[in-house]
Every structure is written in C-alpha cells, then in structure tokens.
Amino acid sequence: MENQGTPNQDNSNQVFSQQFRQLQQLPNSTAVLVLGIISLPVCFCYFLMGIPGFVLSIISLSMASKAKKIYEVNPSLYTPGSYNNLKAGRVCAIIGLVLNSILLITVIIVFVMVASTGVAIESILHDMHVR
C-alpha cells in the first residue's frame, strides 16, 4: 500500500518492487468464504431448523456485496486469491441460502398445517403415504 504509485529509480528495482509489492487482502473475503461454507452444516443441525444457516448466509452475502464494491473501485490493489475467496464464498452463501430457506419453508408449512387443522402430524404423513 505504501509503495503504490511511487516511481522507482532503475529497472531492477522496479522488477523487485513489482514482485514484492504488498497486495492487500480484500477486507472480509475469508470471512465471506467461511460463513458461506459454515452455513451448510449448520443448516441440518438441530432444532432451530434453517434459522442459523439463513442468518449466516445473509450476513455472508451482504459482506460479499460490500467487499465487491470496494474491489471494483481499485482492482489492482488486492490479491487475486482474496478475490477468488470472495467469489467462491458468494456462490457458497447463495447455495446455503437456498437450502436453508427450503428447509425453513418446509418447517413453517408443516407447523401451519398442524396448527390450522389441529390434526397430529403423524396422521397427515400417514395420509400422504410418506411413512
């Protein structure tokens, strides 16, 4: 960051500085990736079906959109690895969001069904021949 744009004296120095110029990590790029991946196993864990994964993937997506805006202002400043992280994390978060919302919608539909009909879930499933 400090060397950005400063003219160099001779050619060898320039090559050296290009090789070792400190490219920055995009802010939050690894966090986007980690949250996007964690949203998958959290999706199936436990009773708050779909809710934690839903929240995690939405946080990840919002972070990704912010980081993408920052990247687009000056793409040459950041490492390609961190931009890859960002893209991958965004895709993972979208997949996680879809899975989690399907699960959440299923749970909500079933609870509404049970609450509105007053019939126990086992008999509904029996009628549907699920079990």
Binding site: F44, F47, M49, V110
Partner: peptide, 14 residues
C-alpha cells in the same frame, strides 16, 4: 434430530 422429532421424517442431515 429436532426436525425428525417435530415433523416425523428424516431431514437431509440425519
């Protein structure tokens, strides 16, 4: 599994 307990069939993580 909370899903299985509440709903009756396996969730994708069971």
């Amino acid at each position: 599994c909370g899903f299985k307990k509440a709903i009756g069939f396996d969730c994708p993580g069971c």
